[in-house]
């Protein structure tokens, strides 16, 4: 979707503010928000692509004025309601519905380090070989899907070169919407600054994006 989250190339969002010796969390609630999001992920009711899409669905003005962990909490609330883990009334009142049954949390304290340390690999074996080889010239599609996609607007309809082949990975455009993993070959595509930004682009500079085969056609 063409939301405000897709902000590559925008201007007017202010200067980059670098804080020296920044703490990991500025407030205790940020750590709890991270913890809640990761712990609720252990119910396996949504995947990483669905979580990203839930954050993209936050209305633009709210998205822009919310901090990172505020966005996480907004998206977490929506995902929990959609998954039926909590009701909207419970979310608003902060109280479990009368008569609701107490569950057993899937993420135990002694599992945390192991779970985080394992991660979730996204590569998959596929029968078909890659359509493109390193060095091939490609053009990114001019596509504007209403759902989740990882082809940023600034890089659509642009010509580039295959720089790396990463193997086949879970395809977010389907995975985010419960349409299966649909593993698809993934490439690092090099697009020059001039191709992306015209005369304003750096003459010697380039952006490398990780793009799935479905986003690409031969140039």
């Amino acid at each position: 979707m063409n939301g405000v989250h897709d902000m590559g190339g925008m201007e007017g969002l202010g200067p980059v503010e670098h804080e020296k010796n920044e703490p990991v969390f500025h407030h205790a609630w940020e750590g709890r928000a991270l913890g809640l999001t990761l712990a609720m992920g252990a119910w396996k009711k949504w995947n990483i692509d669905a979580s990203r899409h839930a954050r993209e669905l936050i209305p633009g003005p709210v998205y822009l004025r919310s901090s990172y962990y505020e966005k996480w909490l907004l998206a977490l609330g929506e995902m929990m309601v959609q998954a039926g883990l909590v009701t909207r009334e419970e979310l608003e009142s902060g109280k479990p519905a009368p008569g609701s049954i107490k569950a057993d949390p899937p993420l135990k304290p002694d599992m945390v380090l192991g779970t985080l340390g394992k991660g979730t690999p996204y590569t998959r074996e596929v029968a078909d070989g890659p359509r493109f080889q390193v060095g091939d010239r490609v053009r990114t599609r001019n596509m504007h899907p209403h759902g989740h996609t990882r082809l940023p607007r600034y890089a659509r309809g642009k010509e580039g070169v295959i720089h790396l082949h990463h193997g086949a990975h879970v395809f977010p455009d389907s995975s985010a919407h419960g349409r299966g993993e649909n593993p698809t070959h993934l490439y690092s595509v090099r697009i020059t600054g001039r191709e992306l930004w015209g005369a304003e682009g750096g003459e010697r500079d380039a952006v490398h994006l990780d793009l799935w085969e479905a986003y690409l056609e031969p140039a």
Binding site: K102, A103, P105
Partner: peptide, 25 residues
């Protein structure tokens, strides 16, 4: 955030000690 954590703990959806571990990590 505190209200949300209380709700999810009361419903048995998260273990607050697991959250402590995540923050400590």
């Amino acid at each position: 955030t505190k209200a949300l954590e209380s709700l999810l703990v009361e419903k048995g959806l998260v273990d607050p000690a697991a959250l402590d571990e995540i923050v400590d990590t």
